[in-house]
């Protein structure tokens, strides 16, 4: 794609978080190849990527809507749905798998009613499965709200979640 420079344009609303997105785009010179970086920033600011954000970013960087959408849906880190108040990531990498990560996922399904990729009905916890967190020595590993917990059994995991 030709690096067409597209000028800054008014943010969709006066929500302050758009400033973070704007700053990131300006630093990247509004180049279309900065798309993924800007999507990261938008997701950090808003928690997820909605249509409005995708349209706005695409317009500013000169990337067609279908391409923005194609990129946002290709990478599993990006989410197009609002997430729960808390996130619980179960690592399902090989070391965790052979050390019982499957039982953790099943336990969450049974107790919270949320499969990986889903949020509990009360919007409290989003359950996610990660490929490998690189915390294999502490398998099985779980990340709750950014905090890594190692050698986690089903009981302990539920304990951690109850304390939230």
């Amino acid at each position: 794609m030709a690096p067409t420079t597209v000028a800054a344009r008014p943010a969709p609303s006066d929500d302050k978080r758009w400033r973070q997105v704007d700053v990131r785009m300006r630093r990247l010179g509004y180049r279309p190849d900065g798309l993924i970086e800007v999507l990261h920033t938008a997701q950090e600011a808003f928690g997820y990527l909605d249509d409005e954000a995708l349209h706005y970013i695409g317009d500013c960087l000169g990337v067609p809507p279908s391409m923005v959408y194609g990129v946002a849906t290709f990478y599993s880190h990006f989410t197009l749905e609002p997430q729960g108040e808390h996130t619980c990531v179960v690592c399902t990498g090989t070391a965790c798998y052979i050390n019982g990560a499957g039982a953790l996922v099943k336990e969450l399904e049974a107790r919270l009613g949320a499969h990986p990729g889903e949020t509990t009905a009360d919007g409290k916890v989003s359950v996610l499965a990660a490929r490998c967190l690189g915390a294999c020595s502490m398998a099985p590993a779980v990340v709750v709200d950014g905090e890594v917990y190692g050698k986690v059994g089903p009981e302990r995991l539920l304990g951690i979640l109850e304390e939230l």
Binding site: D51, L54, H55, P64, P65, S66, M67, V68, Y69, G70, T73, F74
Partner: peptide, 27 residues
């Protein structure tokens, strides 16, 4: 550039714009 592919692997699908119905495509 109306069309692109969304998702990946077995979930890859042809999409217009933001996955919006073709009839509503702005491009």
């Amino acid at each position: 550039h109306v069309w692109d592919i969304r998702g990946r692997g077995a979930n890859a699908r042809l999409v217009s714009d933001m996955g919006t119905p073709w009839g509503e495509s702005t491009t």
